[in-house]
């Protein structure tokens, strides 16, 4: 099923927000990625199933570039600070939803960047393994093991936090 560009951009917005944590930066990156999506020769057709993972890959790469450039001028480790936990503090979110999901969000924030990313691509954004391999630019064969390690790490963080 292909999605309209509006929905796709919203989904890409939430991924870029998880990486950058700042609205202006996210809009910047999306603007850039959208321009690439229109003009790039290797872009898959807009109404094909390949377009979404391809577009996410462009957005992710642009966001990481931006993050690296920003980190060069900052002493704080930005990469692991931005997270679902920070995004969930958006004012429009319902209070009860926040309480319900705080545990899992906190645990996700405690994960390593690469692990958090792959878990979110699968369960939050709903990509399949082939699409995740495309977005992250890794062999399809390593998606399952990497994802499983990430889930086990997440589970351990949750168990540890409940025991403390």
């Amino acid at each position: 099923m292909t999605e309209p560009l509006q929905i796709l951009t919203q989904d890409a917005y939430s991924m870029a927000y998880q990486l950058l944590g700042k609205r202006e930066d996210v809009l910047d990156v999306l603007q850039d990625a959208a321009a690439v999506a229109l003009s790039h020769d290797s872009a898959p057709p807009r109404n094909s199933d390949e377009f979404k993972p391809w577009f996410f890959k462009v957005v992710r790469n642009r966001a990481l570039d931006k993050l690296r450039r920003m980190q060069r001028f900052s002493h704080e480790p930005i990469q692991d600070e931005t997270s679902v936990a920070s995004s969930i503090n958006e004012p429009q979110m319902q209070m009860e939803q926040i309480e319900l999901k705080q545990d899992i969000s906190r645990a996700l924030s405690a994960l390593k960047f690469e692990q958090r990313e792959i878990v979110l691509l699968k369960d939050y954004h709903g990509f399949n393994y082939a699409e995740i391999a495309e977005v992250l630019d890794i062999p399809q064969g390593s998606v399952m093991s990497r994802l499983h390690r990430a889930r086990m790490a997440l589970r351990k963080i949750l168990v540890d936090s409940r025991n403390n």
């Binding site: 919203q10 989904d11 917005y13 939430s14 609205r23 809009l27 959208a34 229109l38 369960d123 997440l154």
Partner: peptide, 30 residues
């Protein structure tokens, strides 16, 4: 259950006109 919990995290949405403008602007950019 971990998988389901993550699936239920509300999606971040930007309802502001700016994001819509980015998509709308694509044609005029071209």
């Amino acid at each position: 259950s971990l998988k389901k919990d993550i699936q239920q995290i509300p999606k971040i949405r930007d309802e502001d006109a700016e994001l819509k403008k980015i998509v709308g602007d694509l044609a005029s950019n071209q």
